[in-house]
Simulated scan of single mutants.
Amino acid sequence: MIRPPLIVAAVLPLLLIACDGGGDPVQQAMREAATTNHAATVTAGEVSGPHGGDHEAGGNQAFAASEAEMHRLMAAASGETVDQAYIAKMIAHHQGAVAMAEIALGDSRDPEVRRMARAVIDTQTREIAEMRAWRPAAAS
């Protein structure tokens, strides 16, 4: 069974590609973040089962795959400088937050949790785009 958030996640990257930002690096990074977030969400949903994580199956179990993937990506992220490593690791961290929020949005029945999950998705996706668009400051 495909949950509506997965359908939205599947269509969003296509919509963003169709609305090309004309070379704006933040817009490009947002398109890339949406595509990456979609892939992470689908992977997490496939690993944890057809419903992502039912309330009855246990709360922690619903997030096990996305949490493990976030830690794997953070450990693999690196950079030549502290700045570059920070950006790489924070992108992975935010991708994990988005993947977990997608699970909560798909499985939670609590309106406040759903509101917070939507806010996390929106905010963290925007921040991923900003970090991907970041370029090191020119040395003085």
Results as ranks from 00 to 15, higher is better:
42 V>R: 14
42 V>N: 08
43 T>D: 14
44 A>K: 06
44 A>P: 09
45 G>M: 14
45 G>C: 11
46 E>F: 15
46 E>M: 14
47 V>W: 14
48 S>Q: 13
48 S>G: 13
48 S>L: 12
48 S>M: 14
49 G>R: 10
49 G>L: 14
50 P>T: 15
51 H>W: 12
52 G>N: 03
52 G>M: 04
54 D>W: 11
54 D>Q: 08
54 D>E: 15
55 H>S: 12
55 H>E: 14
56 E>D: 09
56 E>G: 07
56 E>I: 06
56 E>C: 08
56 E>Y: 11
57 A>E: 15
57 A>N: 10
57 A>C: 08
57 A>R: 08
58 G>N: 12
59 G>A: 10
60 N>K: 11
61 Q>S: 07
62 A>Y: 02
62 A>P: 02
62 A>V: 01
62 A>D: 02
62 A>H: 01
63 F>R: 04
63 F>V: 03
63 F>D: 02
63 F>P: 00
64 A>G: 03
65 A>P: 02
66 S>G: 02
68 A>K: 12
69 E>C: 01
69 E>N: 06
69 E>A: 06
71 H>G: 09
71 H>K: 10
72 R>P: 03
73 L>F: 03
74 M>E: 08
75 A>Q: 04
75 A>I: 00
76 A>R: 01
77 A>T: 02
77 A>K: 02
78 S>M: 10
79 G>N: 04
80 E>N: 05
80 E>S: 11
81 T>C: 03
82 V>I: 06
82 V>E: 15
83 D>H: 01
83 D>E: 07
